[in-house]
């Protein structure tokens, strides 16, 4: 992406983030039953959305890499996988903070939680695989296969965990969905937009960094050839 565009996006995200924080802590009222802790939901759910979006980007760019063999797609897949793991980590971190006062426990093996945890593990393994490959092209090829298989696995894992645990009596719907106050919904949509744009910004920056890394590796390789 063009540097100017990236800079513009940076300032947009910064402004939206401040606005989001203001709305979350100053504008929206306290939720009746859950109290102040429910506010974490404005960051928790957008992070989950961004994580899934990121893993979808991994899936698509992995397929594009295998089809076209352009290194760019591998750089995109790697960037998206790192961000997916990051945002998935935020989900797994903020979830328990919310669950402790509301559900009375830090962790429960509910379908969505378990799926998120397993998903995090799948893509952590993806990142480990990338560091273990013997050369650059191999890292790209093997991780593309894992990226595709890992993403295909997500709905199956979700379904299997649902069968395992049955339906948890308290689901996230109690804090969202139809019963949401208009101001809460607006704030929620604002946070969703902010996080999506934050993801795009980080993705663009990571891709640019990734391409620079490729370039440096290429230069080093040229340098190491004797007589070159």
């Amino acid at each position: 992406m063009h540097r100017g565009l990236e800079l513009a996006l940076f300032f947009l995200v910064a402004a939206l983030m401040i606005l989001s924080l203001y709305c979350v802590f100053q504008v929206v009222p306290n939720e009746v039953t859950m109290g102040a802790v429910q506010r974490i939901f404005y960051f928790h759910v957008p992070s989950a959305w961004v994580a899934f979006l990121a893993f979808f980007v991994v899936f698509v760019s992995s397929m594009l890499y295998l089809a076209t063999r352009r290194l760019l797609w591998d750089v995109v897949a790697n960037a998206a996988a790192e961000l997916g793991v990051l945002f998935c980590g935020i989900v797994l971190f903020t979830g328990p903070i919310w669950a402790r006062p509301v559900w009375g426990t830090w962790w429960t093996w509910e379908a969505r939680l378990t799926t998120t945890l397993v998903l995090e593990m799948v893509f952590l393994a993806y990142l480990v695989l990338r560091t273990q490959a013997e050369n650059r092209a191999q890292a790209a090829r093997l991780s593309a296969v894992v990226g595709i298989v890992g993403f295909l696995d997500v709905p199956i894992i979700y379904y299997s965990v649902q069968i395992w645990r049955g339906h948890h009596p308290i689901v996230f719907k109690s804090s969202g969905g139809q019963g949401l106050e208009p101001i809460m919904l607006k704030t929620f949509m604002l946070c969703m937009t902010t996080f999506t744009l934050l993801f795009l910004l980080l993705l663009a920056m990571r891709i640019r960094l990734g391409l620079l890394q490729e370039w440096v590796a290429e230069l080093k390789e040229q340098d190491s050839i004797p007589g070159a």
Partner: peptide
């Protein structure tokens, strides 16, 4: 195909094979 294959297979396979283990 990787350097530490013994380490990598369980890391890759166990989370991804969650469904068959559960079922």
């Amino acid at each position: 195909r990787t350097r530490r294959s013994e380490l990598l297979l369980p890391l890759l396979l166990l989370p991804a094979a969650t469904p068959v283990v559960i079922w």
